[in-house]
Design a binder for these strands. Structure first.
Length: 951
RNA sequence: GCAGGUGUACCCGAGUGGUCAAAGGGGGCGGGCUCAAGAUCCGCUGCAUAGUGCUUCGCAGGUUCGAAUCCUGCCGCCUGCACCA
C-alpha cells in the first residue's frame, strides 16, 4: 500500500469530526475518565513540547475510550497575559487581535495532529464569556472574606510594569522577562491562600503527584512548628516577640537580633549614641532587595541598640542587636540568638565577641561544660538550664516542656509559622480580567454590583511602543463611574487579575463550558471531577504556582458549596524535557547556538563538540512539528514521541529515530496488507497466533492503564509486528486467524497512531470507526499457555542450536549437513513433572527429597541409579551455585512440563522449519536412548534442553 | 547546607532477591533477497566455549545459599529550596 499520510490523516480527521466522535456528555451509566493537559498560552505556533504533552494525553484519552470509559478530553487557551500586550504594542494594534490570531494558528496545528478533543468545550480565558466568571467568583471570594486589599512591600518588575506574586520571582528575577525585581510599597489585592495552608500541605499525602512536585509544594508552604517567646526590654519594658523552632534552646539565648526595619529598633535607640549605627545599617539594607539581603549577603553585620532584654524563663539580661540577616517578613522579624546551637548565631557571636553558652549535649552523660568549637545544631538532652528541672529533657519533650512553661507564665506560646504568603492577585496591566471594584472618595472601596457584571475590557484602545503604564488608567470611559453606593463620581479599579487566577478553575469550566448562568454547575463538576481529574499532564514548571493556586481555588469553591471535590487533580504526570543536540564547549562548559556547529568556541577558540540540551529558541536546536508532520505525517511524529521515552523521562530528539519510526509504520502497513494473499489453509501456528494476540492485548492494557506508554507502544507497535512476522515465517497463512489478530492489533495501535489505525482497520473490513468502538478483552483460552510454551520451547531450541552451530563447524572437518536432536528420556520428563507437582504442594526437597527418590519406581527400575539421583538433585535442590530447576523454570516452562508435553513430538512436527532456519539439510529427532548417541550428546539431554549434535 | 530524583552495555532505555550476560529501540557489523540501490527479512553486537564457565549494572563495604535489585557509607549528575530563626 502506498502511504499517503497527509491524505489519510486529513480524511480521518474529517470523518471523526463528522461523526462527533469525541463529544462527551454526562452519562452515569459509564465510568468517567477526565483527561486533561495544561492548557497552552497561545504564543503562535505549536512547538514540540506541546506535541509531547498532547500526544501523551490523546493516547490516554483514546485508550480509555477503547476501554469503554466516558472520556472528557477538552482543550482551551490561557490567553490573557503580557506577550499579547507587547505584540500589540509592536504592531500598534489591540491584544485581542493578536490573541485571536494566535489561537487560530495553534488550534490549526492541534487539529492537524489529530488530537481527539471535544471542541465544543473550547474556551479562551480572554473571552468575556470566560472572564466574567472570574469576576463573579472574585466577588464570592470577597463576600467570604478571602479577598483583602492591603499595602505591602511587593515585587515590582520594571520591564513588565507590574507587581509579581512571590511564586513568580525566581532568583530575584521576573519569571517571565528575567529582569531584576525591585521592592515597592503598594496597595494591592490579595487572596487569603494562607487560610488553607494546613490543608494544602496535609492533603498532599493523599494525592498522586510525583514526589518532586510534592516536595516543592511542601517546601513552598514551609510549615514550621515552634514557639513565639516574649522578651521584655529592661528599661522601657517594650515587648520583643521572637519566633523560634527551637524552644529547647531557650536557656542558651545570649542576645536578640531584630531586623533593621523592625519598628522597635528606633524606639530602643532613639537619642542614644547607638542611633546612628542603626540608621546606617537600616539604610544600607533598604538599598538591597530581599533577595540580595538573603542570598548575596556574605558579611553578617549587626549593631547594638543600646538596651538589654530579659529572658522570660531564666531572667538573664541579654543585649539587643539589629542584624542585617534577619528578614522582616518571616516570623516576627526578631530572632532569639543561641550561638551555642545555631551556626549563624555562632558566627555572629564570634564576630562581636558575645557569649556562647552550651545548653544541650549530644547524648546523656556528656560533659555539660565541654566547650563548643562550632554550633551543635542537633537535638540532645538539655543541660545548664537556669531551671534545673528541664535538664535531661531532649527533642520534642524538651520543646513542649518549654512551651508549657512559657504558656503558663504567659510569656510565650506554641505556634506555627508558614513560608507561604497570601496570593498577590493584582497586576497593573491591561490584558487581564478587570478587578470588579470601584474606588469612591466617600464610601471607600465598593464592589461592582453583580447586575453590572461583566466589567469588560475596552476595545477602543490603541497600543504603541512608547506607552508605559496601564492603558486602562488613562481610559476615561473605563475609569469614570458613579459610585453604586452613594451615586457620586468614582473611579474604577484599573488593576487586572494575575493570569494564574484564570487557570485556577478552567478545569471546572470545561465540565460545563457553555453555561451562561454560572461558572459551572455543581452537578457536572461533581460528575467529571470526582476523585479529581483522572490524568493531568503538564510541565514541572508549574509545580508550585499553578498547581498550588488551582488546589487552593478548588478548596475555596468547595467551601462556597460550588462543588464537592476538594482536590482538583487525582493523578499528575509531569512530562520530561525534550532535548536535542547543541554545540558545546567542554572547556568552557557552555552551550551555543546551532549556527556555531563544528566551528570554534567564541570564548576559548577550541573546536566545539556537541551535547544534548533542552530544546530552546535561544540555542536554535528546535525542531518544527509542522515540518515533521509534513515529511512523515502526524502518526509518525506521535509514535516517535511516545516510543522515545516514557512520559516523565527526558527525551532526545533524533533524526534517525524518527526516520526509523516512519519505516516502522511502513512495516506495519505491509503486515496488514499481506492478509490479501491469505487463504483458508490451517497450520499449527494459527492457534499460537491467536493465543499470542490475546496475551499481548492483556499485557498492553496493563501498561496503558499505568500510563507506561513506552511499554504500551512497544507491545502494540513492535512486539505485535514481530509476532506477526514469526507467524508468517512459520508458514502461517490463514485468513481467519489473521483477521482475528489484526483486528486486535488495529485497536492497539489506535491510541498512539490513530489515523493509520483507522485506515488499516477499514482495510481488513472493520465497519464502525475505531474512535467509537469499545475493545472487548477476550479471556485467555485454556490451552493458551501450553500453545505459547511449545512455541517458546521451539525458539529456545533453535537459539541454542544457533549458538552451537558455528562452534560445531570449527570442530568439523567437513561441512555440517545433519542435526540430531535427542530429547530427554521419558523417565526424566516424568520425574520433572512430579517435582513440579511436589513443589506446588510445598514439598520440602531438602529434608525429604532423597528418601522420596529412593523409594521411587524410576529409581528401582533404573540401570543407572547414580544418574537418577544426580538428575533428581539437580532439578530439586540444585547445587551451591545453581538452584534446583524446579525453582527456576518459568511459569510457561512449568506449564509445558506439567502438561506432559512430548518434546520429541513438538520438535518433530516442526523439524522442517528447524532445519530450514538453521540451513541444515537433514534433521533427526528422537528420545535419548532410543537411537544412536550421535556425537555423544545424549548426556546433555534434560527436560526442555535436548542434546544437540551437528554432524 | 536541606529536600526530591537519578547513575544499567557504543547511545537511549526496561529491569518484582534466583528464570539476568541483563527486555526493547537506535547505531554498528554480517547474511538472505536484488542487475543494483532503497525498502524488507534473518542473525551478531562483554570474553571464553560443541552447551553448564568467567568478568560486568557509579565506587567501597555489608546482609544472603544467592544482589543490578535490600542495607550502610562515599562519589557524580539533575531539579527545587535556602542566613527561614
Amino acid at each position: 500500500m502506498r502511504y499517503d499520510h497527509a491524505e489519510i490523516e486529513l480524511r480521518w480527521q474529517d470523518e471523526w469530526e463528522r461523526a462527533n466522535a469525541f463529544h462527551a456528555d454526562v452519562d452515569h451509566s459509564k465510568p468517567k475518565f477526565y483527561c486533561l493537559e495544561m492548557f497552552p498560552y497561545p504564543s503562535g505556533r505549536m512547538h514540540m513540547g506541546h506535541v509531547r504533552n498532547y500526544s501523551i494525553g490523546d493516547a490516554m484519552a483514546r485508550f480509555h475510550r477503547l476501554m469503554g470509559k466516558n472520556v472528557l478530553y477538552p482543550m482551551g487557551y490561557d490567553s490573557f497575559g503580557m506577550p499579547a500586550e507587547n505584540a500589540a504594542k509592536k504592531e500598534r494594534g489591540h491584544p485581542a487581535t493578536v490573541t485571536d490570531r494566535n489561537i487560530s494558528s495553534i488550534q490549526e496545528d492541534q487539529r492537524r495532529m489529530g488530537y481527539s478533543y471535544d471542541w465544543r468545550r473550547r474556551l479562551a480565558t480572554s473571552d468575556v464569556d470566560y472572564y466574567r466568571w472570574n469576576q463573579e467568583m472574585f466577588l464570592d471570594l470577597y463576600d467570604r472574606g478571602l479577598v483583602e486589599r492591603r499595602s505591602a512591600p511587593v515585587n515590582w518588575c520594571v520591564d513588565c510594569d507590574t507587581v509579581l506574586a512571590n511564586e513568580q520571582v525566581k532568583n530575584n528575577r521576573c519569571w517571565r522577562c528575567g529582569l531584576d525585581v525591585v521592592q515597592r510599597d503598594m496597595a494591592q489585592w490579595f487572596l487569603k491562600m494562607t487560610d488553607y495552608s494546613d490543608e494544602l500541605l496535609d492533603s498532599l499525602d493523599e494525592i498522586e503527584f510525583p514526589e518532586n512536585v510534592k516536595a516543592m509544594q511542601r517546601n513552598w508552604i514551609g510549615r514550621s512548628r515552634g514557639a513565639e517567646i516574649k522578651f521584655n526590654t529592661e528599661k522601657s519594658g517594650a515587648e520583643i516577640s521572637c519566633f523560634t523552632t527551637r524552644p529547647d534552646t531557650i536557656f542558651g539565648v545570649t542576645f536578640l537580633t531584630l531586623s533593621p526595619e523592625h519598628p522597635l529598633c528606633e524606639d530602643l535607640c532613639r537619642g542614644t549614641e547607638w542611633e546612628e549605627g542603626w540608621r546606617n545599617l537600616r539604610d544600607e539594607c533598604a538599598r538591597l532587595s530581599e533577595f540580595e539581603r538573603i542570598n548575596l549577603l556574605k558579611e553578617k553585620k549587626g549593631v547594638f541598640l543600646g538596651q538589654h532584654a530579659i529572658n522570660p524563663l531564666s531572667g538573664d539580661r541579654i543585649p539587643v542587636y539589629a542584624g542585617n540577616f534577619v528578614v522582616a517578613g518571616y516570623g516576627t522579624g526578631a530572632v532569639m540568638a543561641v550561638p551555642g546551637h545555631d551556626q549563624r548565631d555562632f558566627d555572629f557571636a564570634k564576630t562581636y565577641d558575645l557569649e556562647i553558652r552550651r545548653v544541650l549535649v549530644e547524648k546523656p552523660g556528656d560533659d555539660p561544660n565541654h566547650p563548643l568549637e562550632q554550633a551543635f545544631t542537633d537535638y540532645g538532652p538539655m543541660v545548664n538550664s537556669a531551671r534545673p528541672e528541664f535538664d535531661g529533657l531532649s527533642g520534642d519533650d524538651a520543646k513542649s516542656a518549654v512551651i508549657d512553661a512559657l504558656e503558663s507564665e504567659n510569656t510565650g506560646l506554641g505556634t506555627t509559622q508558614y513560608r507561604l504568603r497570601d496570593w498577590l492577585l493584582s497586576r497593573q496591566r491591561f490584558w487581564g480580567t478587570p478587578i470588579p471594584m470601584i474606588h469612591c472618595d466617600s464610601c471607600g472601596i465598593v464592589q461592582v454590583p453583580r447586575e453590572d457584571l461583566p466589567v469588560e475590557l475596552p476595545l477602543d484602545v490603541t497600543f504603541t511602543e512608547d506607552q508605559s503604564g496601564n492603558p486602562l488608567s488613562s481610559h476615561d470611559g473605563f475609569t469614570n463611574v458613579t459610585c453604586p453606593s452613594c451615586g457620586s463620581a468614582a473611579s474604577r479599579e484599573t488593576d487586572t487579575m494575575d493570569t494564574f487566577y484564570d487557570s485556577s478553575w478552567y478545569f471546572m469550566r470545561f465540565c460545563d463550558a457553555n453555561n451562561s448562568e454560572s461558572p459551572f454547575s455543581r452537578e457536572f463538576v461533581d460528575y467529571w471531577m470526582e476523585g479529581g481529574v483522572d490524568l493531568y499532564i503538564g510541565g514541572i514548571e508549574h509545580a508550585v504556582m499553578h498547581l498550588l493556586y488551582a488546589r487552593f481555588f478548588t478548596k475555596a469553591t468547595r467551601d462556597m458549596d460550588m462543588n464537592s471535590v476538594g482536590e482538583p487533580f487525582g493523578r499528575l504526570v509531569c512530562q520530561g524535557m525534550l532535548n536535542a543536540p547543541a554545540p558545546y564547549c567542554s572547556d568552557c562548559n557552555a552551550e551555543f547556538h546551532v549556527e556555531l556547529e563544528g566551528k570554534e568556541c567564541p570564548t576559548c577558540g577550541s573546536i566545539l563538540g556537541s551535547r544534548s540540551a533542552k530544546m530552546s529558541k535561544s540555542l536554535g536546536n528546535t525542531v518544527s512539528p509542522g515540518d515533521m508532520v509534513e515529511r512523515y505525517g502526524a502518526d509518525t511524529v506521535r509514535l516517535f514521541i511516545l516510543f522515545g521515552a516514557n512520559p516523565e523521562a527526558g527525551m532526545e530528539w533524533s533524526d534517525t529515530a524518527i526516520e526509523s519510526n516512519h519505516r516502522h509504520i511502513l512495516s506495519i502497513i505491509d503486515a496488514f496488507s499481506s492478509v490479501s494473499t491469505m487463504d483458508s489453509d490451517q497450520n499449527q501456528i494459527d492457534e499460537w497466533l491467536r493465543a499470542r494476540g490475546r496475551a499481548n492485548l492483556a499485557r498492553w492494557i496493563d501498561c496503558m492503564q499505568a500510563v507506561s506508554l513506552r511499554e504500551g507502544v512497544m507491545i502494540s507497535h513492535f512486539e505485535m509486528l514481530s509476532d506477526w512476522q514469526w507467524y508468517v515465517r512459520r508458514g502461517g497463512r490463514n485468513r481467519d486467524s489473521a483477521i482475528e489478530y489484526l483486528s486486535k492489533w488495529a485497536h492497539m495501535i489506535a491510541p498512539a497512531t490513530p489515523h493509520i489505525a483507522e485506515e488499516l482497520w477499514t482495510k481488513i473490513g472493520g465497519k464502525q470507526m475505531l474512535a467509537n468502538t469499545v475493545l472487548t478483552q477476550d479471556q485467555a483460552h485454556e490451552n493458551d499457555s501450553v500453545t505459547l510454551a511449545e512455541e517458546a520451547y521451539l525458539r529456545d531450541v533453535i537459539d541454542t542450536a544457533r549458538t552451537l552451530l558455528p562452534l560445531a563447524q570449527k570442530h568439523s572437518e567437513k561441512p555440517i549437513n545433519r542435526i540430531v536432536i535427542q530429547t530427554a528420556p521419558e523417565w526424566s520428563a516424568d520425574l520433572a513433572k512430579e517435582a513440579i507437582e511436589l513443589k506446588d504442594s510445598s514439598f520440602d526437597f531438602v529434608r525429604e527429597g532423597m528418601s522420596f527418590i529412593k523409594k521411587h519406581q524410576s529409581f528401582a527400575n533404573s540401570s543407572d541409579k547414580g544418574a537418577v539421583i544426580q538428575f533428581w538433585s539437580s532439578i530439586t535442590t540444585g547445587s551451591k551455585k545453581r538452584r534446583g530447576k524446579v525453582q527456576t523454570w518459568t511459569a510457561e516452562e512449568a506449564t509445558l512440563i506439567r502438561s506432559g508435553a512430548n518434546e520429541r513430538a513438538i520438535l518433530e512436527s516442526r523439524s522442517q522449519f528447524i532445519a530450514a532456519t538453521l540451513g541444515i539439510e537433514n534433521i533427526e529427532v528422537y528420545e535419548a536412548g532410543t537411537g544412536e548417541d550421535a556425537g555423544g550428546k545424549a548426556k546433555f539431554a534434560q527436560p526442555l534442553e535436548p542434546g544437540i549434535a551437528f554432524l
